[in-house]
Amino acid sequence: MSNLLGHYNYWIVIVLMMTGFYIVIARPNLIKKVIGLFIFQTSVFILFISMAKIEGGTAPIIAEGISVYSNPLPHVLILTAIVVSLATTALGLALIVRIMEAYGTTNEDEIHVQDEQD
């Protein structure tokens, strides 16, 4: 039981990851797919950030009388990854705007039907 609760950050990550992944696979609406993708990526950010925490550690600023610091590197990495994820989401949404203009729908199934007719 303590193992279950002690790793609660991982459980959050897994639930979020699977939620996002499920939305990407199961939803035909392209906008929802992008949202799912974003949730999926966010779960990984939490994985990184939660591993930076060190028990009893404080903010990584050198100060007297403190010897245990949290690891700042994962935060920096994730800052970069957030920028990447933002760019991906923006590009995905921009593509959806163009798809909406060209097909008149954002539903994947209806797009398939139109592609078949071409």
């Binding site: 992944f21 990407v24 993708l37 999926f40 990526q41 590009l91 959806i96 798809i99």
Partner: peptide, 19 residues
């Protein structure tokens, strides 16, 4: 216009791969 859907499909798969 199918280039748009092809790019979107690649975006979804590529992002999953990168993640």
């Amino acid at each position: 216009r199918r280039a748009l859907t092809a790019a979107f499909q690649y975006l979804v798969m590529g992002t999953i791969g990168a993640t």
